[in-house]
């Protein structure tokens, strides 16, 4: 379970998250929708541990552990996974080397034994096949020269391998064509599990046709301003965000 309690965050003196509260239960897929510049990406970065933000007060608990005091790698080992809006290109780092280093670093942190190479290869191959990732992509440097869709698939492959307790998808649909969107969404859906929660951040309802949420939250001006079921997304698609931004500004 992920709990965000009274989180206040600013950057360069500008307030981004304003007494923000959110709870996502185990097995729940929660969506956050909202206009640009409302703090959605900040929320995901703060939860994952990026250091450019001033966390003024509040708590972020993953299964009871306060993440805010932990380094990003420790948060990852505790089961947090952030699928990036723009996965980074890492020239010179072979994809397989990276995957193995990440997996074993997390296992080490948790006091588990390293995976044997055959077992590791088996898991990568299994996950790659499901996501339609060709083996030559795995031989290249991480994300270098990948299309937008390939990068997102690679991020989902990492999620499948790392088997997190909680996944945050930050605008996973941006830059994806319909086919890539379907493949990525199927990848996420196959990872849905009773003990695993998801937070899906998006501008558009489109993604939620594929990854159907249990809960939809509307975010404006650094707060959740409305919560509903999946039908709320459809309503937003028609009405837009104007009423929320205006009422918050008033």
């Amino acid at each position: 379970m992920l709990e965000v309690k009274n989180l206040n965050v600013s950057i360069g003196g500008r307030k981004i998250l304003n007494d923000f509260n959110l709870t996502v239960q185990d097995g729940e897929v929660a969506a956050i929708m909202g206009p640009n510049g409302t703090g959605k990406s900040t929320l995901s970065y703060v939860i994952a541990g990026r250091k450019d933000y001033d966390v003024e007060s509040g708590e972020v608990l993953l299964n009871g552990d306060n993440l805010l005091e932990l380094e990003p790698d420790v948060r990852a080992a505790k089961g947090l996974f952030l699928a990036f809006q723009y996965p980074l290109e890492i020239p010179g780092v072979a994809t397989m080397t990276f995957l193995k280093a990440a997996l074993n670093a997390q296992r080490k942190q948790r006091g588990e034994a390293e995976l044997s190479t055959p077992e590791f290869m088996k898991r990568v191959k299994g996950a790659a096949d499901k996501l339609g990732i060709a083996s030559d992509m795995l031989k290249r440097a991480l994300n270098v020269g990948f299309s937008g869709g390939e990068k997102k698939r690679m991020d989902i492959l990492q999620m499948a391998l790392l088997e997190p307790a909680f996944g945050i998808l930050d605008e996973t649909d941006s830059g994806l064509d319909i086919d890539a969107l379907r493949i990525v969404s199927e990848g996420v859906n196959s990872l849905r599990a009773p003990k695993r929660g998801f937070l899906v951040i998006t501008h558009y309802q489109r993604l939620l046709d594929y990854i159907v949420p249990d809960t939809v939250h509307v975010m404006a001006n650094g707060q959740i301003v409305r919560t509903g079921g999946k039908e709320l997304a459809l309503e937003l698609e028609k009405s837009g965000y104007r009423e929320y931004t205006e009422s918050a500004a008033a």
Partner: peptide, 19 residues
């Protein structure tokens, strides 16, 4: 890049060494 690697579980010194 450092944050990306750390977010995948690599401790900062390992992420730095890899880069």
């Amino acid at each position: 890049q450092l944050f990306y690697l750390q977010a995948r579980g690599l401790p900062a010194p390992e992420a730095e060494a890899l880069l």
